[in-house]
Design a protein around this nucleic acid. Structure first.
Lengths: 215, 215
DNA sequence: GCTTTTATAGTACAGCGGTACTATGAAAAC
DNA sequence: GTTTTCATAGTACCGCTGTACTATAAAAGC
């Protein structure tokens, strides 16, 4: 037989190709043939590593989720002061918003899958319920610690605050993806949100224009 | 010829059928034949009223947008005190969240189209940029009035607040659509947001459980 | 009353997508 | 050295989808 190859690596390569196709042309344009072409291999090879398209789609989603988790962990660990809630949350903002091309790709494809999951029950469970829940608990923990330290007001509902952070970042990220807002404008909205959370007297410096695209 | 029919009404009927199919099976499951079956007519009749599938898709989107606009206007006009910013914003919350079946359908299909628009430039412009911008300006106006009346703090950035409201409602609505949160939990998050905006001392009464689905 | 228009149905066709089947050379196994 | 296994390619098939073409009965028009 030819060189024995690393199946996991091949699968990752194919999953990456799928993500690129989905980011460029939309998840509906993801076909076995398109993925094969993007990955630079024959159609049958894709079939060789993923028996069925459903398996491929599922694997790419898991691939995305794992990448996202790793990026978030890495960013958290690269913080100078991991104890600072403000720093953590600003890191969260930078991680959650489609600021660079990679992040844009990730958010777009992730959202596409989320829409699929809305009408496909079996696709949804793990990634779109348990994943966000885990993140939300993590944020809640950060906020509770900050609250105990007096960094945020005692009367705040930390779990509601976590839900707000997560949902707001998702919503404002989507507005970037559809072209309603620039990434800078989205970032401003998130930083403004943090300034309200921490009860800052002065809001962050504003971006150039309005918060929405020109009318 | 047979009874002359109202073309606009027929088109609306077909567009409604498309929306039902999209809400039930996903936008990717929308085919000419599926829409025809859902509308109770032959495939060719759908083609008769919409030359091409792209036209049908576009028309259904416009149909959705107009319905949404009408519902929002109607809700605003049915307010007892249209001058109360708080009442307006609570109406916005109830309108924007997928609380009933109709609203659920609308949000789901709308979000599906939004994802399409992320990779299809010509689909996007009008509905997903100009529409939200208009709403955001409307919210900004409401907030500015409330600010002038002293109902919300003077140091708030009303246009950032409008962006937060819109984005948060979208994000939290999406979390309902993917099954992460119940509509009641989403409503609580939004009402909590309003309580923070108006600087309420007491938060709204909490829903039964956690803010996220059980782990 | 004849002709034209209109709303409707049926059917056909070409393309694409997922999947299955067969082939093949090369490395591993023994 | 022979046999088996593995990574790869090519190709064929069936179903579905958008679209086009033809047919037809019934109401308008005049």
């Amino acid at each position: 037989m030819p060189k024995r190859v690393d199946h996991a690596q091949r699968r990752a390569h194919i999953a990456d190709a799928l993500v690129r196709v989905a980011a460029r042309d939309g998840l509906h344009a993801v076909t076995m043939r398109a993925v094969a072409a993007e990955a630079g291999m024959s159609l049958n090879l894709v079939q060789y590593y993923f028996d069925t398209k459903a398996q491929l789609m599922h694997a790419a989603l898991q691939h995305l989720e794992q990448q996202s988790h790793e990026r978030w962990s890495a960013r958290l660990e690269s913080l100078e002061d991991p104890g600072s809630a403000r720093a953590c949350l600003e890191a969260f903002v930078d991680e959650a918003l489609p600021v660079d091309a990679d992040s844009h790709t990730f958010r777009l494809v992730w959202t596409s899958y989320a829409v699929l999951a809305m009408t496909d029950a079996e696709l949804a469970e793990q990634p779109f319920v348990e994943g966000p829940n885990r993140l939300e608990r993590q944020l809640t923990h950060i906020l509770a610690t900050a609250q105990a330290a007096g960094e945020i007001a005692a009367y705040l509902d930390v779990s509601a605050e976590a839900a707000r952070l997560l949902s707001l970042s998702h919503g404002v990220g989507t507005s970037v993806l559809v072209g309603q807002r620039s990434a800078a404008q989205a970032r401003y909205v998130m930083l403004y949100h943090l300034s309200r959370l921490f009860n800052d007297p002065t809001p962050p410096e504003a971006p150039g224009q309005h918060l929405a695209a020109a009318s």
